[in-house]
Design a binder for these strands. Structure first.
Lengths: 124, 124
DNA sequence: GGCTATCTTCTACGTTTGTAGAAGATGCCT
DNA sequence: AGGCATCTTCTACAAACGTAGAAGATAGCC
């Protein structure tokens, strides 16, 4: 599932509050983007067509909910980035982060701990 | 500098052998993509227009070389990914990698070491 | 039962991306 | 000098993306 920039914006809004009406999404997204109501609706419809959202009708209005999880979408996006830009390898990505991104020592250690930690998965 | 999929393909070819002629790029890229000669040329021209490549004329032919480094481009691409898809934070990215990507324990440890290692920068 | 507010559907249009042919320019070989 | 092999320039076109107005459908209120 390949999402465009604008589509990510919409999906982020839906993931953070689903199910969501057009108005819900616009409240969240209109602020940062200043989109017209119909623009938001168009985006939502295209995402339904793409299979990223599911649409239900309540009375005359549509409500939307994710059909793919944020994690799934992240996985695709990351994979695409690795392939295009990092020789397809996590190693290149991490190397880049270490050598190019200005991380404090503390930050780097935090990330390293996160990575090395077996139980990092789901912890309440 | 925001590069598209196809542009990344071309840039990767140029970075790995610069300066490069249209033919050089096509030899590298035509294989995996099967592009026509003029398609490659169009891409190169667009990248010049964008400022990603510099064009020189040798006799009647053009040769191209990068104007931005692979690292710079990687930085932009990574930043864009973080912003769009990972709440703008490295933490979310690393968390995703740990919990969603199927890495072996060994692989995870290797990456963690890479991250934690002070001297990971440039070592001959 | 009609009005108004709200939603949706349809349509559209400019830009970017991906892809490439036709035609014109240039240089090299004999 | 003529011709072949190359290169470049111009132009095009379809699909995807970003954005949105006009017009039609609904529903709740008085």
């Amino acid at each position: 599932m390949n999402l465009s920039e604008a589509e990510w914006t919409v999906m982020n809004a839906v993931w953070s509050k689903a199910p969501a009406s057009v108005r819900d999404v616009q409240d969240r997204v209109g602020a940062e983007r200043g989109w017209a109501h119909t623009t938001v609706k168009t985006m939502l419809d295209r995402l339904v067509a793409k299979g990223a959202l599911r649409e239900k009708k309540r009375a005359n209005a549509s409500i939307y909910e994710p059909r793919i999880s944020r994690e799934e979408a992240r996985t695709s996006a990351l994979r695409a980035l690795l392939t295009r830009s990092f020789d397809g390898s996590f190693g290149s990505l991490v190397h880049h982060i270490v050598s190019e991104e200005r991380l404090s020592k503390k930050e780097r250690e935090r990330l390293a701990r996160q990575l090395g930690d077996d139980d990092a998965e789901e912890r309440p």
